[in-house]
Design a protein around this nucleic acid. Structure first.
Lengths: 255, 255
DNA sequence: AAGTGGTCTAGACCACTAG
DNA sequence: TAGTGGTCTAGACCACTTC
């Protein structure tokens, strides 16, 4: 049977672009809309193939791209699941500060401040929201091995996080991105980071226990969800005396 | 015909792991050994499928992974080519310094020094070579928009770059990675980078035209080829007054 | 045993490039 | 027009998980 005959099947798959892209778009929409929540399984591949009226290979190609993107996770014999940020594993996908020797540790987070304010120019630009839009500003200090290493200034569009309170934010027993996901249905898929070197001043210096004028690594990160919509701005200042920002390019697994 | 019957075909494909991984290993070996050089086309998919005695779909899966890894590039209607670092495009795969507004520019490179010495402890460790092994040390200053922004200290294992002279190194009309590839058959596939903030001192400060004590971004990069073999250590010191290190996580193309 | 994802086959037809 | 990669089908069987 020619491919075109299938196109009229079940959930209308518009022409013009490859079938698997259409299928992928439908799956993406289902995840973004919360039809399948974080940690839940999506229907089986054979069921989805029948549902969309495509061959199993085509369905798999669509799922493959979502797996590569990090939105889905496959588990042989069990099913395909919406990526959840709860495990400790995924955390290092977006946390890149490691010891000088490359050792990884989970930071302890201490909340310093929490405020509802109006976005300043930089925030509204980074978050693609109107000037003076309501935002939540949070400041955390992250410690590694008992010593303060990072000061995080987090800005969230209030409209995306209704009812967020300081208690909710600090009482979480998991990562911050898991909170966004479990309570507000926001899946962080990508981050955009810009790094520069700065000098420690005033409050930041004292929070990190360094002298004014000490070099700090400043990371300006925008977290994005589906359709590259920004959901969080985070400015981190890192004392890199005993830690480094680690990063590899070229996904290539060792061959 | 059952898959197992094919396993005995042409270039012996050992069992135990998926067929496409075997095929991929054979292709990788061919590229690493220089059987197909940078910029050249490998045989067509149908020819390779027949050669290895696998279905076209299986062959494509092997090629897919090498394309994802960056070792091969597909061009519809023309063929599949060994990735070449000559084009200006690929350069930004490994060069991450951009203007504050995200604008990209090609740096002008000025050679400052070139010397053949013995590896120090840090270099021998980073390059996985014996202590006191012979290495080539090069210092470059990179300028953007006519102003010096980066000081690069490059260390190469002399054994991998026989006959390398200052003239060869500075006379190249292309990127440094293209030189490694075209003259020494070394394909840089991955980089491992560690970043920290430091303070400008002495020579570095004067090369960059900043005062001692100015904050600099230090990037310690190890370039890797097939089998994750290190081929270059590069320590960059960047004046981030008007530039930033830019990076995105989560390959996800905008959906 | 039943259900899931993982691998593999053997084709067909489409889209693009080049002579 | 011939050759290349790109998409898609309709199965088969394997590996893993759960009951």
């Amino acid at each position: 049977m020619p491919a075109t005959a299938r196109r009229a099947a079940a959930p209308a798959l518009a022409p013009g672009r490859p079938l698997y892209e259409e299928v992928r778009a439908h799956l993406t929409e289902g995840i973004a809309a919360g039809r399948w929540k974080a940690g839940e399984a999506i229907p089986s591949e054979s069921w989805l193939a029948g549902h969309f009226g495509v061959a199993i290979g085509t369905l798999r190609k669509a799922v493959d791209s979502l797996v590569a993107q990090g939105a889905l996770v496959r588990r042989q014999g069990k099913g395909t699941f919406v990526t959840s940020h709860d495990g400790r594993r995924l955390m290092f996908h977006f946390f890149h500060i490691v010891g000088e020797d490359g050792s990884r540790a989970y930071p302890e987070v201490r909340a310093v401040s929490f405020a509802r304010v109006r976005a300043d120019a930089a925030e509204s630009h980074a978050l693609a929201i109107p000037p003076d839009e309501r935002v939540v500003r949070v400041r955390n200090v992250l410690s590694l091995a008992g010593r303060p290493v990072i000061v995080d200034d987090i800005t969230l569009p209030a409209a995306l996080f209704p009812g967020l309170t300081e208690r909710i934010f600090t009482a979480r027993d998991n990562t911050i991105y898991h909170l966004y996901q479990s309570r507000y249905g926001i899946n962080v898929l990508r981050t955009d980071e810009r790094l520069r070197a700065t000098l420690a001043t005033g409050v930041t210096a004292s929070l990190l226990g360094v002298t004014a004028g000490a070099p700090l690594l400043e990371i300006r990160r925008v977290a994005l969800t589906f359709r590259d919509r920004p959901v969080e701005l985070r400015v981190s200042r890192v004392n890199t005396a005993a830690h480094v920002y680690h990063n590899t390019f070229g996904k290539g697994e060792a061959i």
